[in-house]
């Protein structure tokens, strides 16, 4: 097996090798999502690859990126999906973010979303950053790598 870690590695081939070693028969489709490479895995056993609340998928994505980064530290981050699972979760998350933003707009309250990992938080921040009425902040949760996102009415709206 090649162990020349300085050579940039092909994300798709690296992923397929990893999953092959773990006993999974997969095919992988490459897509671009918001200028990021997304590898969508089609497998005979998707549930096992996703894991509880996407835990296994998250571990796989983390390790793959560590390996790719090791090979070439200009490597852009790669996202993984299994049969559209993450895409679906992402759409639900965006919907919840917009619903929460709507409540903040209507009632002026501060709303807190549940603790999320960095990937999910990025989705929320990104989808609300253009919103003129809402600002978002991540706040640490004790004893966890996750943070909650606070949505609040945007302050210092340029004096009109």
């Amino acid at each position: 097996m090649s162990s020349d870690t300085k050579t940039p590695q092909d994300p798709k081939a690296t992923l397929q090798t990893l999953l092959g070693h773990l006993g999974f028969e997969v095919s992988v489709q490459e897509q671009m999502v918001e200028e990021q490479l997304m590898l969508d895995i089609q497998s005979d056993d998707p549930g096992r690859l996703i894991g509880r609340q996407g835990q296994t998928l998250g571990d796989l994505q983390y390790l793959l990126n560590r390996i790719l980064f090791r090979g070439d530290d200009r490597t852009p981050k790669v996202m993984l999906d299994v049969g559209g699972y993450r895409q679906q979760a992402r759409e639900q998350l965006i919907k919840r973010a917009h619903d929460a933003a709507e409540k903040v707009r209507r009632f002026g309250d501060i709303i807190e979303l549940e603790p999320m990992n960095a990937f999910d938080r990025r989705i929320v921040h990104q989808c609300l950053k253009e919103d003129p009425d809402i600002e978002t902040h991540s706040v640490e949760v004790e004893g966890s790598d996750k943070k909650v996102i606070l949505l609040r009415p945007r302050r210092n709206v340029s004096n009109n």
Partner: peptide
């Protein structure tokens, strides 16, 4: 090992997934 053991934890977790698959 990684920061806070993240990396070895991810390796072990995937090892378990592969082991139970096989």
């Amino acid at each position: 090992i990684g920061r806070k053991g993240n990396t070895i934890q991810a390796i072990r977790s995937l090892l378990q997934v592969g082991a139970s698959k096989k």
